[in-house]
């Protein structure tokens, strides 16, 4: 890869590495895709569809809802309710709000039951205002959407890096360091991504703003998780699924998740221990 296009989108840093510079048409298409995604799914902008859903009950059609919320349906089932996209209001009350107040309310809202929301394809019907947060898998979906655009334009050598959520396509594998949760100058291990592999990492330490407060909630308790501090998941072909599973690893044991979806993982626990799957393509430094 010789060319790098770096930009900021959906509140984080992106980098797309390709062998040749992307044409302005392709870049414009990617920009448009990101903008459309943000206008629909970002709870950090007041004009988004999900922000409108937080104002009143009703019926809404959201692009990619079937795909994205379909994954949430599965994760909600697998984790017995711990993964639930309706954590938005609670996260916001805890301080992770559109203005980044980072100031928790005395009584954060409870997480509404996901089963109260009716969905048919991309159309969602609510009976009360709800604040959807797709933080568990939304970024991964956007990576997949961009990978699709590159594919449609015949660009088969590319690595998309959305600050740790990676999709790699090409003819040769790449080596990726797993950043130490407590020290960004160190790696706890290295994994090898084959072409068409997606890798997603999630950690609670950096998006933390107070005593035990961070952005990964267990929807059943409505409070941040505590046992796991960092996870990585590798899945072929889908950054969205890798992203969702990386979050699910904070709230469910590995065997439950592996039973539902084969994948490779590394998880770092709060006590400092690290566990990883037997078929991890890489190593954890002991």
């Amino acid at each position: 890869m010789t060319d790098t296009w770096a930009f900021d989108a959906i509140g984080t840093s992106w980098q797309i590495d390709t062998t040749l510079p992307l044409s302005s048409d392709v870049r414009a298409e990617i920009d448009g895709c990101i903008d459309g995604f943000d206008r629909t799914w970002s709870r950090f902008r007041s004009d988004s569809a999900v922000s409108q859903m937080a104002e009143r009950a009703g019926t809404w059609t959201l692009e990619h809802a079937a795909h994205l919320l379909g994954l949430y349906d599965e994760l909600h089932h697998i984790t017995e309710g711990s993964v639930n996209p309706l954590i938005g209001r609670t996260l916001s009350d805890l301080g992770y709000d559109a203005g980044y107040s980072l100031t928790p309310a005395t009584r954060p809202a409870d997480v509404p039951a996901w089963t109260n929301v009716q969905r048919s394809g991309d159309t969602i019907t609510t009976t009360q205002p709800v604040l959807i947060d797709v933080g568990a898998a939304g970024k991964g979906l956007l990576v997949d959407l961009i990978a699709s655009i590159l594919s449609e334009h015949g660009i088969d050598q590319a690595t998309i890096d959305a600050s740790g959520d990676l999709y790699h396509r090409g003819t040769t594998p790449i080596r990726v360091a797993l950043e130490h949760p407590d020290d960004p100058t160190r790696a706890i291990g290295v994994v090898v991504l084959e072409p068409e592999d997606a890798l997603c990492g999630s950690a609670t330490n950096r998006r933390a703003w107070g005593d035990g407060l961070h952005h990964v909630l267990d929807a059943r308790t409505g409070r941040p998780t505590a046992d796991v501090v960092a996870t990585w998941v590798i899945v072929p072909h889908s950054c969205m699924i890798a992203d969702g599973l990386a979050t699910a690893h904070f709230v469910a044991p590995p065997e439950t998740l592996l039973e539902a979806v084969p994948h490779r993982f590394v998880r770092v626990h709060a006590d400092g221990t690290v566990t990883w799957s037997p078929d991890l393509p890489g190593e954890v430094f002991k």
């Binding site: 980044y100 990676l166 950690a203």
Partner: peptide
């Protein structure tokens, strides 16, 4: 390695607020 996967690059808005 050619890439690093971690949490050091998170939301700029969040980091600025913090």
């Amino acid at each position: 390695v050619s890439k690093v996967s971690g949490s050091s690059l998170t939301s700029q808005g969040f980091n600025q607020a913090l």
